[in-house]
Nucleic acid binder design. Structure first.
Length: 172
DNA sequence: ACCCCGATCGTA
DNA sequence: ACGATCGGGGTT
């Protein structure tokens, strides 16, 4: 079990999104295998929250890779992203689904971005946390069982830019 | 100050 | 198909 370092995240977002499928999200004693991700890439991506430029809300997207971007959606769910690429280039990988490995009640359902964050207890206070800090209990690791088959699909839940095959899903 | 609406989910 | 629920951002 090896923690992913910052150089893993500081790469082209499509590569990071694909490579994150099969990796393990860890928060305290909770662990889950990431099974679905999406890439949101730069101000030219109409679905990226930075599409209308830099605001206090999107500030973290412009920072260093490996930080959490967490925001509230529809008044009742939070969404978790990991910032990618380089400073001043806004991009991230959105975590859409995972499979529970440890620390969850039996049959916990992590098959959706809102379910995932709720089960992990990830709220807006997690925004701007560094998943690459050595003393963080919130990080992503690689158990080397990882790369199984990954398929590229259209992104969902958005109205613009949904034709791009920027969603990556673990094949069962 | 107001208005709109969104990277969702559960129920109908 | 639709309602719940809320905060950021753009507009007035």
């Amino acid at each position: 079990m090896q923690r992913l370092e910052r150089d893993f995240f500081a790469r082209p977002t499509l590569l990071v999104a694909r490579d994150l499928v099969g990796k393990i999200l860890v928060l305290g004693d909770k662990m889950a295998r990431i099974s679905e991700t999406e890439a949101y890439v730069g101000e030219d991506d109409p679905a990226c929250h930075a599409a209308r430029g830099r605001t206090p809300c999107t500030e973290v997207l412009y920072g260093e890779a490996g930080y959490a971007y967490v925001y509230m959606i529809y008044g009742m769910y939070t969404c978790l992203n990991i910032v990618t690429e380089r400073k001043d280039y806004p991009a991230s990988v959105f975590l859409r689904a995972a499979e529970p490995l440890a620390g969850f009640p039996a049959r916990t359902d992590l098959s959706g971005p809102g379910k995932l964050t709720r089960a992990f207890g990830i709220d807006r206070t997690f925004n701007k946390l560094d998943l690459c800090s050595p003393d963080s209990s919130f990080y992503i690791c690689d158990d080397k069982l990882s790369p199984q088959r990954v398929t590229a699909l259209e992104r969902v839940g958005i109205t613009a830019g949904c034709e791009r095959l920027w969603r990556f899903k673990l094949q069962n």
